Simulated scan of single mutants.
Amino acid sequence: MDDSAKFLTVAQQLLTEQGVGVVGVAFDSSQALTQLDVLRPDVILVDVGLGDESGFDLAERIAGHNGSNGWPTETILISTRTEEDLRDLVEDSPAAGYLEKVALSAQAIRNLLAPRCR
């Protein structure tokens, strides 16, 4: 989920080419939460800065939603900011982890989720 249509297009194309099934995209929190029940993604990428919204708040809402619908969706926070800038906030969130947008790849997602899948 990202508020930049250009980034969503590029990320969707990149991940699809790398073998990741992208089931949907969302531009805001409301759209993302609505799609959770319908699309049932395994992973949702959430931009930290969503204009007027916070990706950290959305990660909390997704975690609460997971408990109510029984469908476990992992959240990965993404941003153009460095991991060091956001480390404490990411650690305090229910997200599986954080990726800088420039490092986004199918392998980076797998590496981040690997410890949780054991």
Results as ranks from 00 to 15, higher is better:
18 Q>W: 00
98 Y>F: 15
85 D>K: 11
28 D>C: 11
29 S>L: 02
105 S>P: 03
49 G>P: 02
25 V>I: 14
60 E>S: 08
82 T>V: 04
21 G>E: 14
5 A>R: 13
7 F>D: 04
113 L>Q: 07
10 V>A: 12
101 K>N: 09
46 V>H: 08
81 R>K: 15
111 N>T: 13
52 D>P: 13
101 K>W: 07
41 P>E: 01
94 P>A: 05
103 A>G: 05
24 G>D: 06
11 A>S: 10
63 A>E: 14
27 F>T: 14
98 Y>I: 01
109 I>G: 01
43 V>W: 01
4 S>W: 06
114 A>S: 15
93 S>M: 06
33 L>H: 02
87 R>E: 15
109 I>Y: 02
82 T>H: 13
44 I>Y: 00
111 N>P: 05
112 L>T: 04
20 V>S: 00
115 P>V: 06
26 A>T: 10
89 L>P: 07
42 D>F: 04
22 V>L: 02
79 S>Q: 11
82 T>L: 10
93 S>Q: 10
65 H>S: 09
88 D>L: 12
95 A>E: 09
88 D>F: 08
116 R>W: 14
39 L>I: 10
67 G>F: 05
3 D>I: 05
95 A>R: 08
33 L>Q: 04
115 P>K: 07
8 L>H: 04
69 N>H: 13
1 M>F: 11
24 G>L: 01
72 P>C: 01
47 D>P: 03
61 R>P: 01
112 L>S: 06
12 Q>E: 15
31 Q>L: 02
37 D>S: 09
4 S>G: 08
118 R>T: 10
23 V>M: 02
48 V>C: 05
113 L>Y: 05
21 G>T: 07
95 A>K: 02
3 D>Y: 07
28 D>K: 10
40 R>F: 13
48 V>G: 00
59 A>S: 15
115 P>G: 03
21 G>S: 13
48 V>L: 03
68 S>L: 10
71 W>P: 07
19 G>Q: 03
18 Q>Y: 00
76 I>K: 01
1 M>N: 05
76 I>T: 08
44 I>P: 03
56 F>E: 05
46 V>N: 08
114 A>H: 13
107 Q>K: 13
82 T>R: 14
83 E>R: 12
53 E>F: 07
49 G>Y: 15
62 I>P: 02
49 G>F: 15
49 G>A: 13
30 S>E: 15
15 L>G: 00
26 A>F: 07
112 L>D: 03
117 C>N: 14
66 N>M: 09
116 R>Q: 14
96 A>T: 10
76 I>C: 03
5 A>T: 14
54 S>H: 06
89 L>V: 10
56 F>W: 09
35 Q>E: 15
38 V>H: 09
94 P>K: 04
55 G>N: 04
44 I>L: 11
60 E>P: 06
105 S>N: 08
106 A>Q: 05
113 L>P: 08
67 G>W: 06
6 K>S: 11
62 I>N: 04
63 A>D: 15
102 V>L: 14
60 E>V: 03
48 V>H: 00
45 L>M: 02
19 G>D: 03
39 L>G: 05
10 V>I: 14
62 I>F: 07
33 L>G: 03
54 S>V: 09
40 R>P: 12
2 D>V: 03
67 G>T: 04
112 L>E: 07
72 P>A: 04
13 Q>M: 09
